[in-house]
Simulated assay, not measured.
Amino acid sequence: MSSVTVGLVFIVLLQFLYILYLTYAEQYVEWRRLRKIKQFGDYGEKLVSDYLDNLEDVFGVYHGLQSRFDRKTFEIDHLLLTHQGIILIETKNIRGKIVSKRDGWCQIKTSEKGKSYERDFKSPIAQVDRTKKIFEAMMLDNGLKIETLPLVVFSNHDADLQLGKERYPVLHLHELERHVDSLTAQVPLSTRQLREIQKLIDQSFNH
């Protein structure tokens, strides 16, 4: 093979690699970004799981429940069974200033160089509200009429929550135990009721 032929093959190969780079570089960057967000979120859920596992006066604790009901797939980050109610927790591990907008929430962060940038994300209040409705419908379909107590927990201590009045409580992780202890139900759930709910959860969810 002549040097000219080798040179042409090399040029064609470079062109092919460049086209490949242009085709997949953006997808790879997006994949890395989403993977980082997932890892960060998983770490936040682990922090909350460890915290909840050490709470006293709690009948049962569940993490990462997944199920499907009425053709709807849903996931519960954390669920607490207490005599004062069934607590559904949506976890966020986000830092920076957190504000609510009309169509969602926004994270505002400032870099080390002082540059500020924003990132919109879906309202966790809307997420936990959807979970509440599906979970309660599932329980009712199995003969258990209950009303859950949804809330949102930010596990990152650098989250600056600047929110208005929300439908459900939005807390830092260190506020969670005090909030759970402060709950009072007009008609507390009996141990028998909690056992029935626990049995149904064990039968209906992957965890």
Rank of each mutant, 00 (worst) to 15 (best):
C106L: 15
A126Y: 12
D70P: 02
F121I: 05
Q186F: 12
I134K: 01
G114T: 07
G64L: 03
D129F: 02
E90G: 12
K109L: 14
A185K: 15
E118L: 07
S123M: 07
E56S: 15
T191R: 02
G164I: 01
D103S: 14
L144H: 12
N93Y: 04
V180E: 03
R68K: 14
I86Y: 06
A137W: 00
Y117Q: 03
S116G: 00
F154V: 01
D160C: 06
S123L: 05
P124K: 11
S190M: 09
K72I: 15
C106Y: 01
E112M: 11
K122M: 08
V61A: 08
V61N: 07
S100I: 00
F74H: 08
E112R: 10
I125A: 05
H179C: 06
T73G: 04
E90D: 10
G164E: 06
H179A: 06
R130D: 03
E56Y: 06
E177H: 08
K133W: 00
F121G: 12
A185Q: 13
G104K: 05
D160M: 13
K145A: 13
D141L: 02
F121Y: 09
T191L: 04
N93E: 05
G104R: 04
R68S: 13
S123I: 08
P169N: 11
P124V: 11
S100V: 02
K165D: 12
E118V: 05
I146W: 04
T91C: 12
G114A: 10
I86Q: 04
A159P: 13
R71L: 13
V58D: 09
R95D: 14
S182I: 03
T73W: 03
K72W: 00
I125D: 07
K92N: 11
L144Q: 09
E136C: 03
E90I: 05
V58W: 05
H157P: 15
K115P: 00
L144C: 02
D158P: 01
E136S: 05
S182K: 14
Q127L: 02
H63R: 12
I125C: 10
H172S: 08
M139S: 08
